[in-house]
Amino acid sequence: MTKRKLFHFKGIGLRTRENLYGYGFVFLWIIGFVVFTMVPLVQTFLFSVNQVTVTATGIDLRPVQWDNYSRALVTDPTFVGLLIEYVIETLVSVPIAIIFSLVIALFLNMNFKFKGFFRTIFFLPVVITSGPVIQELTAQGATSVPGVANLGAITEFLSTLPSYLSNPVEYLLTSFIQILWFSGVQILIYLSSLQKIDKSLYEAASIDGASAWESFWKITLPSLSTTTLINAAYTIITLSHFSENKVIKYIYNQTYAVQGGIGYAGAMSFLYFFVLLLLLAVMFLVLSPRREKRR
């Protein structure tokens, strides 16, 4: 009772007051969202259904309906190929990044000597994964599994496989370290969730005779299911936004190309965005049922 009275001190109701202050704090963000995200997004969409020409005075729009989209999907020989390559590479990378970061997080959650040293190593990539750096390192062959990708036997074996099989394997071999390097933040996220799991659960399980192996599958993994979802989403989004991503580079180059243009680039951006959303949806479908089974 006294509490409710307290909030009445300015003569406005609690709910109005909360609304007012809540929006007061979020106000800046809402303006920013409208100005820097929503309006540009709508504008890009408008560009994508127009032929855009940049003139000295401004930009000219000539409506072409869905021509840019059909051009990207049907006429352009490179775009769809790059898009498929991107989907395959993402589907290969995400499980590796997830499993790898989980394993490292499990290691780092244990007690052993020199833990700080190893921790320093595993988080190092977080600070250095910028586009040009990765590009230079990949160009010099420094991100492939040391020694493996250059073995004659392997390249020979790959050449016998059909390209839809050999391409992902080749990608895996040449970019293995790059995938691992994209796992830094995920390790952090896993580690902090691992530390939140109630230790008494493990004690109870071991008293009941569960082995460490069993408690990993029955306690650790189920407790991490939400975290896995977050990590998978994070991995997909980071990989898709990475400036060395071939689709992004292609769209960027087409923006300034004579035969491309802003409208065409806009159409490809939206198609790419759509594929990204599809990937996220697939990931949710794959990872969510496991959460239901637990109950």
Binding site: L41, T44, I248, Y252, I262, F270, Y272, L276
Partner: peptide, 18 residues
């Protein structure tokens, strides 16, 4: 939801008008 959306939307969908 919108905050999450800003994280998902790729930069090239908004960069040219910006």
């Amino acid at each position: 939801a919108l905050i999450l959306a800003t994280f998902i939307i790729p930069a090239q969908n908004t960069v040219i008008p910006q």
